[in-house]
Computed example of a mutant assay.
Amino acid sequence: MKKFNLILGAFVTLFLLSCEGPQGPPGFDGFDGRDGIDGEDGINILGKVIDIEGTFDISNEYSIFYEFPQTVEVFETDVVLVYLLWDQTEDGNGEPVDIWRLLPQTRILDQGLLQYNYDFTFFDVNIFLESDFDLETLQPGDTDNQVFRIAVLPAESAQSGKLDTSNINSVMGALGISEDQVSKIKLD
């Protein structure tokens, strides 16, 4: 019986190895089928990134209010992130590079703690200052001409868990938005 199994194994191995050879010519393409009925269009999920510049003062109660225009559709389930232009540096070629920080951001000042914070609805964003001291004592560098980047992320993108929302470049990359596509708005 052992000889039989050995001979059978040798034939099977020889048979499997002998099935190789040069590949034959490709076959002919089949006929194209009929077109089907088009399906309904899906929802186009897009994000948006907007830069706004404004000044905090007593007349606006140290808040900058931005209402989304009709051209920006924000759904209740979308996530709105706000970044503060914290500083600028230069790259190896001497070109400016923006440094963005995700809000809320807290600064420790001589007067006490200052926090840049925000809230939003699907209609607007309100960026405001909070502190444990009188805001009228702030220096112009903390209040005047502050630049914020608002990123509107579809719920699906924000909830994937793979997106680093603390990094604006990562967010813009996920949305497929380049720097030259960012709308810039100066508020009065």
Rank of each mutant, 00 (worst) to 15 (best):
G27I: 06
T137R: 03
V79E: 14
D164S: 00
D180Y: 04
I177T: 08
V182D: 04
N93M: 14
K162V: 00
S131N: 01
V79Q: 14
G141N: 11
S59P: 01
Q23P: 01
L17P: 02
F75M: 09
Y62D: 00
I99T: 12
E76L: 05
V182H: 04
E95F: 04
F148E: 04
F28E: 11
T55N: 06
R107S: 03
T106D: 10
V80R: 13
V79C: 10
L6Q: 03
I99E: 08
I43A: 13
K3R: 14
D164G: 00
L102H: 07
T13Q: 01
N145P: 00
P140L: 13
S131I: 02
F148L: 07
L46W: 01
N117H: 13
L103P: 08
Q181M: 11
V80E: 14
V171Q: 07
G92N: 15
I58N: 08
S157N: 12
N44V: 05
I99V: 15
D98H: 07
Y116A: 04
G54H: 01
L153R: 05
R107M: 05
F4L: 15
D35S: 08
L163Q: 06
S178Q: 09
L16C: 11
I37S: 11
S160A: 04
R34E: 13
V152I: 15
L16A: 15
F31G: 00
I150T: 03
V72Q: 04
Q23M: 14
D91E: 09
S59L: 07
F120H: 15
Q111P: 02
V12H: 03
A151T: 07
G30D: 12
K48G: 03
L109K: 10
L6V: 09
E136H: 12
S170C: 03
G42D: 01
D110M: 11
F133D: 02
I168L: 08
D38A: 09
S63M: 04
G112C: 06
Q181R: 06
N44M: 07
I185M: 11
V74I: 11
T89K: 13
N93T: 11
L81R: 15
G112S: 12
D51I: 04
